[in-house]
Amino acid sequence: MSAPLRLVIFDVDGTLVDSQGDIVAAMGAAFAAVGLPAPKREAVLSIVGLSLDVAVPRLAAGGSAADHALMVQGYKDAYMGLRAQSGVAASSPLYPGALDCLERLHAMPDVLLGIATGKSKRGLDKLIEGHGLEHFFITRQVADFHPSKPHPSMILEAMRETGVAPEHTLMLGDTSYDMEMAAAAGVRGVGVSWGYHPKEQLCRADHLIDDFASLSGLIEEMWSLGA
């Protein structure tokens, strides 16, 4: 009898790529568009992972709905401009070991890879194309089609698309929203220490890792792959 398929779902910003420079700068431009001072870096990074229509009102709680709409568009415009100036590889570089990890997992016949991100489809497609990652991910869940994290919709749809059961699925991410989303979907959550939320906030994680090499070993141990 063949082994069941396994699904590893990756968050993007703060997990696969470090895009904090452009995120902070774009949010500053969004605030400037409505005449507000830029929020502090720590405040901006605290909302990374949320969809923009949720993140912006959290950062600008006193603003009107019209202001928030302008800010969301201002963020998108600024982010696209920054990315166009420097290119994807420089704008959102892969974290050390990320590509090697993806290649190793992709080579495992029983493992499927997916993405669950607060990015738009356009933004994710550009990032994947810029890094040449098109062949890795069989399912890509984005903010355009789902409620914001930590709602479990992205993970539930990824499992539906791939036919993988919750007990054979895990979510890798750097924020509390990722871990809460995993718990809500009934899958394992693996938190990473190199992202935008401190480890202390990843209390819902089933496991914590400090590098991508540890992820490969953890997955093989949990699922006895290659044994």
Rank of each mutant, 00 (worst) to 15 (best):
D100C: 00
G130W: 08
F136C: 13
E134H: 15
G87A: 09
H135N: 15
A98G: 13
A84F: 03
L127N: 02
H106L: 00
L105K: 02
L127H: 05
G130I: 05
A116Q: 07
R83L: 09
H106D: 15
Y95E: 01
A89R: 12
V88C: 13
E134W: 10
S91V: 03
P96H: 14
S91C: 15
R83Y: 02
E129M: 14
V111A: 02
I115L: 13
L82W: 08
L82S: 11
R83P: 06
R104N: 03
H106R: 06
D100G: 08
A89C: 07
G132H: 12
G118T: 05
H131A: 11
A84G: 04
G123F: 01
V88D: 01
S120N: 00
L102Q: 07
P93L: 08
H131K: 03
P109F: 05
L112R: 13
A84Y: 04
S86C: 03
A98V: 14
R104F: 02
L102C: 10
S120V: 02
L82P: 03
E103M: 00
A84R: 05
L124V: 03
L124P: 04
L105T: 04
T117K: 01
P93T: 00
D125W: 11
R83D: 05
L124W: 04
A89Y: 07
L113M: 13
K119F: 00
G132N: 11
A89Q: 13
L99D: 01
H135K: 08
K121Q: 15
G87H: 03
K119S: 01
E103T: 11
P96E: 08
H106C: 12
R83H: 01
L82M: 06
L124A: 08
F136N: 11
P109Y: 00
I115V: 14
K126A: 15
H135P: 11
L105F: 10
P109M: 06
S86H: 08
A90K: 12
I128R: 11
L112A: 13
G130E: 09
L94T: 08
P96T: 14
C101A: 13
R83F: 00
L124C: 02
E103K: 09
H106E: 05
A107C: 02
E129W: 10
A98D: 11
A98Y: 02
G118R: 05
S120M: 13
D110K: 07
C101F: 06
L82V: 04
G132F: 13
L127W: 05
Q85G: 02
L113Q: 08
E103G: 11
H131V: 06
R122N: 08
